[in-house]
Simulated assay, not measured.
Amino acid sequence: MLDNPVTVKPEARQQIQDTLRANKIPGEYGLRVGVRGGGCGSSWLLGFDLPGPSDEVYNVEGVQVIIDRKHLLYVLGAQIGYEPGGFTVEKS
Rank of each mutant, 00 (worst) to 15 (best):
residue 70 K to Q: 10
residue 30 G to M: 08
residue 62 G to C: 07
residue 42 S to A: 10
residue 88 T to N: 12
residue 58 Y to P: 03
residue 45 L to T: 05
residue 22 A to W: 07
residue 58 Y to R: 09
residue 12 A to G: 06
residue 78 A to H: 09
residue 55 D to A: 02
residue 10 P to L: 07
residue 21 R to D: 11
residue 70 K to F: 00
residue 73 L to D: 13
residue 85 G to W: 11
residue 92 S to G: 11
residue 20 L to D: 02
residue 74 Y to D: 15
residue 83 E to V: 14
residue 18 D to Y: 00
residue 22 A to E: 13
residue 88 T to Y: 08
residue 30 G to H: 01
residue 73 L to R: 13
residue 29 Y to M: 09
residue 15 Q to A: 15
residue 1 M to Y: 04
residue 48 F to D: 00
residue 32 R to P: 00
residue 65 V to P: 05
residue 15 Q to S: 14
residue 75 V to L: 00
residue 74 Y to H: 14
residue 1 M to Q: 00
residue 19 T to F: 00
residue 46 L to T: 01
residue 41 G to Q: 14
residue 47 G to N: 12
residue 23 N to W: 08
residue 49 D to L: 01
residue 70 K to W: 07
residue 1 M to H: 07
residue 10 P to Y: 12
residue 85 G to P: 06
residue 16 I to S: 04
residue 39 G to I: 01
residue 53 P to N: 00
residue 47 G to T: 04
residue 16 I to F: 12
residue 74 Y to C: 08
residue 27 G to P: 03
residue 90 E to K: 15
residue 75 V to P: 00
residue 88 T to G: 02
residue 72 L to D: 10
residue 54 S to R: 03
residue 8 V to C: 04
residue 21 R to M: 03
residue 45 L to E: 08
residue 27 G to W: 11
residue 45 L to N: 02
residue 23 N to K: 13
residue 78 A to P: 01
residue 57 V to P: 02
residue 76 L to H: 15
residue 21 R to K: 14
residue 37 G to N: 03
residue 4 N to Y: 12
residue 23 N to R: 14
residue 23 N to Y: 09
residue 12 A to Q: 03
residue 57 V to T: 13
residue 7 T to D: 15
residue 77 G to V: 03
residue 59 N to R: 14
residue 86 G to N: 08
residue 60 V to G: 11
residue 4 N to M: 14
residue 79 Q to H: 10
residue 34 G to C: 02
residue 13 R to C: 03
residue 78 A to D: 09
residue 46 L to W: 03
residue 52 G to D: 11
residue 66 I to A: 06
